[in-house]
Structure formats: C-alpha cells, structure tokens
C-alpha cells in the first residue's frame, strides 16, 4: 500500500489535492477550481488517490465530497518522518565528531603553546 501511496504522491497535482483536503472535505468542483485542468482530469487524479487508500468518498445526498483517510495519511507521515529521522541520526553523530575534533584541535594548540612537536 505504501508503494502505491508514494506513486500517488509523485504527481504535483495530487500532492496539491492532498494539501487542499488537509483543510477539510471538498467536492470535485471545489477541488478543480484552483487548477487550470478539467474536472474529469481532477476526477482521475482523485481516483488514483482513492485507489492508493489516501482519500475516501462520503455519500451526502447527491453530493460526493472527498476527504482524507486520516489513518493512511498518518502512516505516510510516519514514513516520511522515518526518512527525516535517518538524517537526524547522522547529524547527531556528526555533532559528536565535531565536538571530538574540536577537543583535538584545542589539545594540538595547547601542545604547540607548550613547545611540544
């Protein structure tokens, strides 16, 4: 499912649709408004997002508003968080290396000051 989610989000229009839906549910007409593409094209994008399990359709009389599936988006968010975490783990190690070489540099300059090689 995650593979499908990432594929679904590889398209900038679909990412923009997710962003819009993060503000609350919306109809196809609402969603199409900011874009210079047709409603059928928007509907096709929405279908990709729905097939990926990121959004769902609510039946409200004759209206069919789309909304985010919170659990799917939360999971995706979690995974993007994992990517970020890997960077942070590396940089915290880099912080430690920097502290370590700073001590070395100080030691070296102290040794020089004391007339040692």
């Amino acid at each position: 499912m995650l593979d499908q989610s990432f594929a679904a989000l590889s398209d900038p229009v679909r990412r923009a649709l997710i962003q819009r839906l993060a503000e609350g549910e919306a109809t196809v007409q609402d969603l199409a408004r900011p874009f210079s593409i047709s409603q059928p094209a928007i509907s096709r994008h929405l279908k990709v997002l729905e097939d990926a399990g990121l959004i769902e359709t609510r039946v409200d009389g004759t209206a069919r508003p789309r909304r985010l599936k919170p659990e799917a988006v939360a999971q995706l968010w979690n995974w993007l968080g994992q990517y970020r975490t890997l960077w942070e783990v590396q940089f915290q190690k880099l912080d430690a290396v920097l502290d370590e070489i700073a001590d070395d540099e100080q030691q070296t300059s102290r040794d020089r000051g004391a007339g040692l090689p």
Binding site: L2, S10, W79, L80, Q82, Y83, L86
Partner: peptide
Amino acid sequence: REEAIRNGMTDGFDEV
C-alpha cells in the same frame, strides 16, 4: 526521488 525516500526509510521498517 521517491525511490530514494523509500530506500532511505527501509532501516525504519522494524520500528514501524
């Protein structure tokens, strides 16, 4: 890019 993000996250599999 998507693949790099996915691969970058494989280390987090177990935790998730």
